[in-house]
Design a protein around this nucleic acid. Sequence first.
DNA 1: AAGTTATGTGACCGTTTGGTCACCTGTCAA
DNA 2: TTGACAGGTGACCAAACGGTCACATAACTT
Lengths: 106, 106
Amino acid sequence: MTDDDRVFKALADPSRRFLLDLLFARDGRTLTELERELEMTRFGVAKHLRVLEEAGLVVVRRSGREKLHYLNPVPIRQIHDRWIDKFTEQHVTALIDLKRTLEEES
Amino acid sequence: MTDDDRVFKALADPSRRFLLDLLFARDGRTLTELERELEMTRFGVAKHLRVLEEAGLVVVRRSGREKLHYLNPVPIRQIHDRWIDKFTEQHVTALIDLKRTLEEES
DNA sequence: AAGTTATGTGACCGTTTGGTCACCTGTCAA
DNA sequence: TTGACAGGTGACCAAACGGTCACATAACTT
């Protein structure tokens, strides 16, 4: 299993993406804290966090018996850079901004 | 199955990511042309392309009996924007550039 | 010390997924 | 019109994945 394989496999599950959303909104949460937000047993959440951690999408810091989880944006940016070059980036961001503007008007 | 679910599921397979790499290098290829680059039957490749197409990562244009495939960068950019805000983006790109520089020196 | 809180492990099971095959449709060229 | 070429469909099977459970370890509290 290669590094990037771990990253994409980790992102393939909606529960794990939701965990990233939670950490994007607020970093440094514990397993128990995150568990409350999902309709799933603690074991399930722990398993998902482990997958995210092994993919490098989440980094952890121990503090006593607690394990604090942080979002690591680097792998996400690398996905971006793999298929979007500097030149294309300008067009795409402009396109997305335009789309957003049009949707707000309607 | 939501839109973004389709995108992430599509990206979860290494063969499909390789197809995106091929189209990133050169757009507008046919199934037969792409098939030559993979060690897989035509049916397998067709199935993967279909998944990429349904996810909106690849768009197609018919030309007679040929089907030309193009890479669509928009969903990739949206993944980026989901977990990297404007502020963080600067730090992350700087970090990745630095990492690349250090690796080139060694 | 004893109870509570936070997290970790390995097994288990139903579902999904990757890849192949036999067979079929549509298009171009001689 | 006959054959070659480009692509599509539905069924099938082995392997991987999501989620749960019983059980276990470690740290804080009183």
